[in-house]
Design a protein around this nucleic acid. Structure first.
Lengths: 208, 208
DNA sequence: TATAACCTGTATCAAAAGATACAGGTTTTA
DNA sequence: TAAAACCTGTATCTTTTGATACAGGTTATA
């Protein structure tokens, strides 16, 4: 099955006309690891839909980062989505974490189709709502929870997501997920280890 | 001009058919000051559009709050919007700050119309995008800026919004806007006054 | 006009978060 | 296999944030 058909199936695009349009204007692209898909302060010209691979989306300033979310196959980057409906610069960054297969749709069509095709409307709306609710959660978390709680929550959700008690991330990667410094992460993890909550290895954390 | 016509004009609803539908199912309601429109953990059954008045939307836990945004006339609550597209509980609170005139639309129709009527599609999409981008900004702010900077930014934006250097808010109100405690606000404001950035009065802050 | 309900100011202490610095480990790659 | 590029651990110090406590001011309202 080719990538376009994969896409149609995954997001339930049955309208033949829409399939034709996507096939015609959608640009299939294989992007290497560690490539920027969306970059802060740059204009967005495409909506990227991830078919294979994994893209990390985050906010950052000079020396800090905080994760917004990961885009996994057959999700779309709602950020580019938001920027897609108006003609403006990105306020976020997105970068491939593995080699990634994308289908790129010119922004102009994204909103056009959302009124023309029901399945496209549903796809964009759903994507948007999911990111919005995620962001709300993260916002509240940031506003009211301490770093140690945020870290533990993150580890637990990773563990749950991967169905494994072992998390293979370095301390600095963790710091960049939750918006703090490497030293804080080391300090807190060590305390968790003393508390018997987890055990530490090289680039490896095991929840007990 | 009645409230429905106000609405049609403000958000550019020209389709006669949509006007008819809104008039038929939309419920005009005048809500007193300090009434919850949306409440955390409760189901949302209506999309509320503010015609007159002002609604505050925030996140909170037991003892703290942080502002999400205000809904001013002819805006809609994008939160209820988000919850509107799926059938789920609210993660936020919204309360009138003045007597407020609302038009309430049953949630089922909100997504239905977004595909049926172009102007409705544009209205909901735009509302959504604006809140999303606001929230992104606030998220980054929370992640990377200290309380004193967040407070000063807030004061400046209030001042700009109201076109006046004077802000009539109490310290505890400010604390609930930016997600900190009353004492922090008092402390920081006093420091700002010593620095000659502003002057303090009773429920009154003047930016210099 | 008295009382309650807010509001401001401030001092002290404790906890959380961050910055700096350095020692020494592991992995990658040239 | 040596060097470079990461990674972890930890100690110290500073800054930021928050909690507690109390004095006294202003405003609303009964």
């Amino acid at each position: 099955m080719n990538e376009f058909n994969q896409l149609f199936k995954a997001i339930n695009i049955s309208e033949e006309q829409l399939q034709k349009e996507i096939t015609k204007v959608g640009e299939l692209q294989i992007v290497p690891k560690n490539t920027f898909i969306v970059e802060q302060d740059k204009y967005i010209k495409w909506l990227a839909i991830v078919i294979n691979g994994r893209v990390r989306v985050w906010q950052g300033n000079e020396d800090r980062q905080i994760l917004l979310y990961y885009v996994n196959p057959i999700q779309t980057c709602a950020l580019s989505l938001s920027a897609t409906f108006r003609d403006c610069k990105s306020v976020i960054n997105a970068k491939t974490e593995t080699e990634t297969t994308l289908i790129k749709i010119p922004v102009r069509l994204v909103s056009e189709w959302s009124f023309k095709y029901k399945s496209w409307n549903k796809f964009t709306t759903d994507s948007f709502i999911i990111s919005y609710e995620d962001l709300l959660l993260s916002h509240k978390n940031l506003a009211f929870n301490k770093v140690n709680k945020r870290l533990l929550d993150y580890l637990k959700s990773e563990s749950k997501k991967n169905r494994s008690p072992i998390i293979n991330l370095s301390h600095s990667q963790l710091a960049n997920e939750i918006g703090t410094t490497r030293e804080m992460v080391s300090k807190i993890l060590k305390q968790f280890e003393l508390d018997g909550i987890l055990s530490l290895g090289f680039k490896k954390i095991e929840l007990l």
